[in-house]
Amino acid sequence: MSVFGRLAGLVAARGNALLTAAVLVAAVAYPFLFPGYAINSMTMAICYGIGIVALKLLTGYGGQFSLGHSAFFALGSYVAFILAPTIGFAAAVAVAGIAAALLGALLGLAGLRIKGHYLGLLTFMVALALFQMPKASALAPITGGSSGLFYRAPLPATTPAARDVWWYWIVLAVALAITVGVHFLLRSRFGRALQASRDNALAAGALGVDTALVDVSAFAVSGAFAGIAGGLLAGVIGYISYDSFPYTLSILLFVGMTVTGARSLPAAYLGGALIVFVPTWAHDITSRLSWAVYGGALLALLYIQVNAPRLLQRLTGREATRPVGDVS
């Protein structure tokens, strides 16, 4: 690499660090800069961002498709609200993480057997199936049936506005911890093993990677983070019911992951913002077809993502080459 190349790399790295620092400062200062403005939506966006970070760990780096992450949110929220009155909110969210990790491990076991789109569909069906569960009459005494559960977490603030700011900081702190944690996890022995397992499971196994253990663990860890995010989000809202985290959330999380780059962690929070704000915009355009607008926009985005190199080539007038053996 040339001296200039190295220099450019260094500047880029520094630039990234600077940008990250700037965004962090802005995030912490946000409630002071824009007091009261959309703070609740920001808090929710960060919660969904945590879910997308969890999904990036599992799918972007681990190669396992999940269209079931709303189930972790839902499980996390119910566990948190059921336990919070007796053991306190913080402990309840921790237990929610553990419960979601167990569900994740279960799906991970399924993931050992089926891959790719099938796993995506299976997890989606799980999200569809579990979504109904809290309504079951047998569970209603615990889950509140179709009327749901309320819980008001004790915070050192009394006015609704001050509570909103507290929630924002709590969620921000947890998000930061989880994102940094995943960042280092990916650079650990486990992270290398996870990516090896995704790239080539047979080769990884021959190199000593226990791919089954690694894949199941990744699902459990990802589930735990999504469950924690669900527990937190429930606390923020103060109320949950069976349709607080519908299967559509799974879709939004997956799309949020795809469009912000499956292997870029900080961008996950952009994805979280998309989840909170885009449906509102789409709704403003046309209320009856808002999901169609969303789907159409997604297709357009995917088309650009896939064909950008070819389109650019055509614009610059050079021959476009097509691979002989496309795999679609």
């Binding site: 780096y61 290398r192 990516q195 090896a196 995704r198 790239d199 080539n200 047979l202 080769a203 990884a204 021959a206």
Partner: peptide, 8 residues
């Protein structure tokens, strides 16, 4: 057939 891990 060479089985390097492309992500690493």
């Amino acid at each position: 057939n060479l089985a390097l891990l492309d992500s690493l």
